[in-house]
Design a protein around this nucleic acid. Sequence first.
DNA 1: TGCCAGGCCGGGT
DNA 2: ACCCGGCATGGC
Length: 216
Amino acid sequence: MPREDLLRDMYTAMLTALGPSRWWPATTPFEVAVGAILTQNTNWRNVEKAIGNLKAAGMLSPEGIRSAHPDELAECIRPSGYFRMKANRLKDFVAFLGEECDMALTQLRALPLDSAREALLGVRGIGPETADSILLYALEKPSFVVDAYTRRILTRHALLPEDVLYDEMRDFFMDVLDPDVPLYNEFHALLVRVAATYCLKNTQHCTECPLAPFLP
DNA sequence: TGCCAGGCCGGGT
DNA sequence: ACCCGGCATGGC
């Protein structure tokens, strides 16, 4: 079966089983980016606490983060883990955006996808997954997001080898799917939800998994 | 109670 | 170009 058909069938199976995801859980592009940084290797539930703390402290804004004392910023985001490092990453991201952060985000969105991606990857603390999350969920650019869950599903289904590189997984989708923002948005969300529910790290009770019919 | 969570960096080979 | 240790909290 052609890869495009396989991916669309897997997508349909997940969407039918779980329903739409309504991602990303944030209200502004800037908040999406903050969440993308805070959720690096971290459960989203912990990120929610950190974002709540930021909001309560008036720090969930470019100015709030820029003017915050590093230690106070770190204390707010403590529940999201790696809090000292992530405080610096938020500071670095805000510094990258400059004085007019909303305008900077608008200008970033106006760039071609590859240029915007390179610009984000130049920021310390923003790697490929975080960059693609910001591109897709904040800037609404058709950049497919790959994460540990995506890798687990792709390798368990023997679609790609264990040692596959990030960009190879991304291309696996983008080479055959139309550059469709709503599709990429929902596809990634469904992969995360399915993997987190049915495809645990050291278990394989995949009989109830919507993707079980696609196992090799 | 240990294992895991929507990674990334910096230094070493 | 990889490989690896470090970073850290909270939930189950």
